Structure formats: C-alpha cells, structure tokens
Amino acid sequence: MLRNGTRVKGELFDDESVQKILKAGNVLSEFTHHVKYPRTYHLPWSPGMNRDDRMMNDTNIFRGQKIMICEKLDGENTSCYTDRVTARSLETSSHPSRNWVKNLWAQFGYNIPVGWRVCGENMFAKHAIHYSKANGNALETYFYMFSIWDDKNMCLSWDETLEWAELLELTTVPVYYYGVYDIDVITELNDKMEDSPNNIEGYVIRLAREYHYSEFRDVCGKYVRKNHVQNNHGHWTTQKITKNELK
C-alpha cells in the first residue's frame, strides 16, 4: 500500500478469480493503475550478481523461440503514464536528473492510453558508467524505450513495441540480436562484454512475444559484467550530477 492509501496491483491482480473477489469486496477502486517495474533476474551465466540479486531457474523457455537481446543501459528505470512519470519506485521524489525525461514526457504522454505505461531508461546522469564521446559510448538520447504495457498488465511484443516507439517518436534501446535463440550468439555477446568492461553494463534477453507481468521473471533475464558497480561514494542520487554526453 502506498502512503496515499492506494493499493498496488500484484502479479495475480488480473486473474479472473482474484477480480471476482476484489469486485465482491468493492475494493477495485482502491488500486492504482501505476505499477512497479518488476525485478529482472540474472541469467545463469551472468557474472555480476550481488548478494541481493536473484537468478533465473533456467533458460529453457528461450530455446526454439524468437527473442530480442538489447544492451542493458546503466541508467534509471522509468515508467511514463498518461498522468505522471515515475522511477521504479512509485513514490519517487523529485531529482534534477529526472527533469529532462519529464520535459520529454510532456511532448508524448498525452498519447499514452489510460492505464498503459511506456518503460525505458533515463540516461541523463552518470551512474557507474560515464557515457561520453571520449569513452566511445555517447548517447543518441537521454531516454531509451524498452517496453510498453497495456491496461491488463501485458507487455506488448517487441514488434508492437517498435510500432509504438515510432508513433510516440521515441528511441528504443540498442538491439544486439532479434531472432530465434542461438547459443552461439550468446557466446559471442559474452566475449564482447569481456572485451568492453568499462563502457557497457551488460545485456537483456526477452521473449519477442507479448507476456503478462506474472511471467516476467521467467521470460526476461539480464547479464551484468563482473564488478559493474564499484562506487565508494554512496548512491548516485546523493552525488553531484555528472551529465552523460550525447553524440
């Protein structure tokens, strides 16, 4: 429950039996349409797990299926609704690094259907990686879209995501691979991560098809390079902002 008294939808909220119970209890109106972005589990071969991270049980669900692999950008997870913008926490406080994305949202947010959300990475401020021309990883934009969810908590397919990105005039995350799962592609990507330890955080694999919020931990996984987070100065939000660079 949020501080304002509204309730947050869980994984089973859209289940028919749960809906009947909530409707009978006359409490459906107490739930907000804002949803906390789910935790992305590590792939079994990800070397960058921390103590509080979790790992996927297996990756069998990817085999024989069409997948999308994109760069895992080192920014702040951000969700854009038609009525507001939030970080991963639904009770986000204001921060100067979020102003650019909020100004961008003002230009497209009114086109997001009620109850839907556009999710992406806010790249304005440096976290662990500095995106710059000198490092060879300068950015196209300060907001990269990676998914869009409808009012039934379904993450749309990657093809539909691209269509919405074009409609909203948003840039999508850099894609490494889009096709049927191929272990040789994974091996090649892992080598790339090892060869670029200072300017890439990792990558994310997702099923290309649509999926429900409750499936997320099984159909989406991340690879994070070893020793990615090395910060002895506290959380990035408490430090002076170092602005990432655009191309």
Rank of each mutant, 00 (worst) to 15 (best):
T32L: 00
F108G: 00
D53F: 07
N244S: 12
D151Y: 11
N135C: 10
V85N: 01
A165W: 05
N232D: 15
Y142I: 09
N199V: 08
T82S: 13
Y211N: 05
P113D: 07
M68T: 14
I21N: 11
N26W: 04
Y181V: 02
P113E: 05
L170Q: 01
S79C: 02
E166S: 14
T141G: 07
F216R: 06
H33F: 09
K102T: 01
P38V: 06
K222N: 02
T161G: 10
E215I: 06
N227S: 11
D74H: 03
N231V: 12
Y176A: 08
V8A: 07
G179T: 07
Y181L: 00
E11Y: 13
N99P: 01
I67K: 01
P44Y: 09
M55Y: 10
D151R: 11
R206V: 04
K133E: 08
N60E: 14
S147E: 13
N122K: 03
A134V: 14
F124T: 10
I21M: 13
S93G: 12
N153D: 15
L189K: 07
L189W: 09
Y110S: 15
T238G: 09
L90M: 01
C220F: 12
D182F: 05
N199F: 08
T32Q: 00
M56G: 06
V18K: 10
L168R: 03
Y181P: 02
I183L: 11
D184K: 15
N135D: 13
H33Y: 11
I186V: 14
L139S: 07
Y37W: 08
R3D: 14
K240Y: 11
D83W: 00
N199C: 08
E215N: 15
L207W: 04
V204M: 09
S214W: 02
F62C: 08
H95K: 05
C119V: 11
I69K: 02
F62K: 08
V35W: 02
G202K: 04
E30C: 10
I21A: 14
M49F: 08
A134Y: 13
R7S: 10
L12R: 13
S214A: 12
K20H: 11
T40R: 02
G25W: 04
G202L: 03
S46C: 07
L22N: 04
E210N: 15
Y144C: 09
E121W: 02
T141I: 03
L156I: 04
R88T: 00
N198Q: 15
G115S: 09
V114E: 15
E11D: 12
V185Q: 09
P113F: 08
W164I: 05
I61Q: 05
Y178V: 14
L139D: 06
Y176H: 13
T161M: 15
Y110I: 10
S157A: 05
T59V: 13
A125K: 12
K133M: 05
S93V: 11
I129T: 09
E215P: 09
I69P: 01
R54N: 14
L73S: 06
K23V: 06
T172M: 10
R206Q: 12
L90W: 00
T6Q: 13
Y41W: 11
K126W: 05
I61Y: 03
S132W: 06
R117C: 14
W116V: 02
Y81G: 00
T86D: 00
S214G: 03
E245A: 01
M1Q: 10
Q107R: 11
P113C: 08
I67W: 01
